[in-house]
Simulated scan of single mutants.
Amino acid sequence: MDKVSFRKKQIDIMEEFMKSDQAQKEINEVYLKLFDDSGFKAAKSIGITLSMGSEIPTFPIIKECWDLGKEVYIPKTFKDYSMTFVQYTKDTELETSSFGVREPKNYQTDVLNPPELIIAPGLAFSEDKKARLGFGAGYYDRYLAQYPTKTVALALSRQYYLQTQWPVFVLDKPIDQIISVAKDA
């Protein structure tokens, strides 16, 4: 199946799944696994998106980072499909991008490229190739090509595949680690 078709199918699957009690149970389990992960514990700076729609809510992760004294950085994207990570605090002023993502309004200061650990967003992840199916714009793949750093993905059961179900291209950057409740099954 081509990426565009698989992405659309995956969006539908996740929108439906996120309404279920099972999704909330899995989200809580994934949080606990992340917070217990040695790479997460060791990282002093975390790159993460502000979640939206049918994504795993990221604010509980951000709050845990702040409680642990970690610096949190969120992406600011640009028209040329590049992005940078800007420090996020309780006082950060946000604006909505053309993709509907909340981003820092001011991005000239408090930039860190790359954060020690990036929690990469995505629609689907595969164990065999550590592949990540993003939302189609290629921001993370371009960023990771320029700023290699440790990456982790959080995958609910409906996002986790043992075998990659979509085409993976040379520009697609693999994820270092996938944290998923599906791995326990």
Rank of each mutant, 00 (worst) to 15 (best):
L68C: 10
G136H: 00
D172H: 09
R102P: 00
I175Y: 09
R158I: 13
Q22A: 14
Q22P: 02
Y161A: 04
T58C: 12
N28H: 15
R7T: 11
F135G: 06
I56R: 01
P104A: 03
K44P: 00
N113P: 09
S20D: 10
K33P: 09
L171S: 06
E127N: 11
I11M: 13
L144V: 10
Y81N: 08
G53R: 15
L117P: 14
G134C: 04
T89L: 01
G53V: 10
L171Q: 11
Q165L: 05
P57S: 03
Y160E: 02
V30D: 04
C65S: 13
S126M: 10
K130E: 05
K76L: 00
I62S: 01
T58D: 14
D184L: 12
F40T: 05
P114M: 07
T58R: 15
E15V: 14
L162P: 03
A145G: 12
L117C: 11
E93Y: 12
Y107I: 08
G122F: 13
K70F: 10
K19N: 12
A182M: 09
Y81L: 06
L162K: 15
L94D: 14
Q108V: 06
F99T: 06
Q146I: 12
V30R: 06
T109A: 12
M14C: 09
Y160A: 02
E16A: 15
Q163D: 08
S82Q: 09
V4P: 00
E103M: 13
L156M: 07
I74T: 13
T149R: 11
T151Q: 07
Y161L: 10
A120M: 04
I61T: 12
N106E: 15
P104F: 04
D36F: 11
K63A: 07
P104Y: 07
I56N: 02
K19Y: 08
E16T: 15
F125L: 01
F59E: 14
G122E: 10
D80N: 10
E26S: 01
E64R: 14
I178W: 14
A182H: 10
K70G: 08
M83D: 01
T77L: 04
F6L: 10
F85D: 00
T89F: 01
T49N: 03
G136L: 01
S180T: 15
P57H: 02
I62N: 01
I27D: 03
E55R: 01
Y139T: 13
Y147R: 09
D80G: 00
D184N: 13
P121N: 05
C65E: 02
I119D: 02
D141Q: 02
S157H: 02
S54R: 06
E71L: 13
K183V: 11
S157T: 07
A182P: 04
D12P: 00
I46P: 00
M14E: 06
N28P: 04
I46L: 06
K129G: 04
L32R: 11
R158A: 09
D36R: 14
L171C: 02
F59L: 14
K130W: 03
E16H: 14
E71P: 02
T92G: 06
S157F: 01
F125P: 00
R158L: 10
S126Q: 12
F85P: 00
F169A: 05
P114K: 09
L123F: 10
K79M: 05
I27G: 00
E26Q: 05
Y161H: 13
R142K: 14
V86R: 05
L68Q: 14
Q165F: 01
T84F: 05
K90C: 06
L112A: 04
S54I: 08
K3N: 07
